[in-house]
């Protein structure tokens, strides 16, 4: 038996599997798109006043909230990711951060974003929730209808504890003295025995 003939079945299996995957994917993809657009069409839910929802509410009851308008409150964190005339800003309510898709003008570059040493702007966002957004590759996201800053972000410079001020240089000094005191024996460690 030659090597080629032995690996042939494997190649065939792979090819067959890949084609089936592709076919099944294509067929059903069409089907589910139709189904989901039907589900997303306005229902009685639209007439409610938007209900406040936390990220945990949204994750735990995603199906119930899917396609509904909700009020989400949290801190803008990280970065403002520009995509043409829209932006992504991730908003964290403490438990989870959720991506908010908004027109660039709604969340302007002046937005204060939370990161180390900075508490970001606290936003109240009225948005349509998508459990698996068809527009954004199945993302779990909020499409903002309006956004307002509830409380402005600010810098929160972390304190420098005196214990660290002592411990850091102190231990470092010990390392340096140790290195000088034992330099001969240390050099010996890095020569071949």
């Amino acid at each position: 038996m030659s090597r080629a003939s032995r690996s042939l079945p494997l190649v065939l299996v792979l090819a067959a599997a890949a084609t089936t995957a592709l076919l099944v994917g294509l067929c059903t993809a069409g089907g589910t798109v139709a189904a989901s657009t039907a589900a997303a069409s306005p229902t009685a839910a639209e007439t409610f006043t938007p209900a406040p929802a936390s990220s945990t509410d949204l994750i735990e009851n995603a199906d119930a909230y899917d396609g509904r308008t909700v009020v989400f409150e949290g801190e803008a964190i990280g970065d403002r990711l520009e995509r043409g005339d829209h932006v992504w800003v991730n908003v964290s309510d403490g438990a989870n951060a959720v991506g908010v898709w908004a027109p660039a003008s709604m969340l302007p570059p002046s937005l204060v974003l939370g990161r180390y040493g900075v508490v970001g702007d606290r936003l109240r966002i009225v948005a349509v929730f998508h459990r698996a957004c068809a527009e954004h590759g199945g993302d779990f996201d909020l499409h903002a209808l309006s956004a307002e800053v509830v409380s402005a972000g600010r810098a929160t410079p972390p304190p420098v504890p005196w214990t660290l001020l002592v411990a850091g240089p102190g231990t470092f000094l010990l390392v340096v003295t140790g290195a000088v005191r034992f330099r001969k024996r240390i050099r010996l460690l890095f020569t071949k025995s």
């Binding site: 994917g25 589910t32 798109v33 989901s36 698996a132 957004c133 068809a134 590759g137 199945g138």
Partner: peptide, 14 residues
């Protein structure tokens, strides 16, 4: 797909 978790092929991939 059976449970209709994701709306389209792109979402299924991502």
């Amino acid at each position: 797909m059976r449970d209709g978790v994701y709306p389209d092929a792109i979402a299924l991939f991502r």
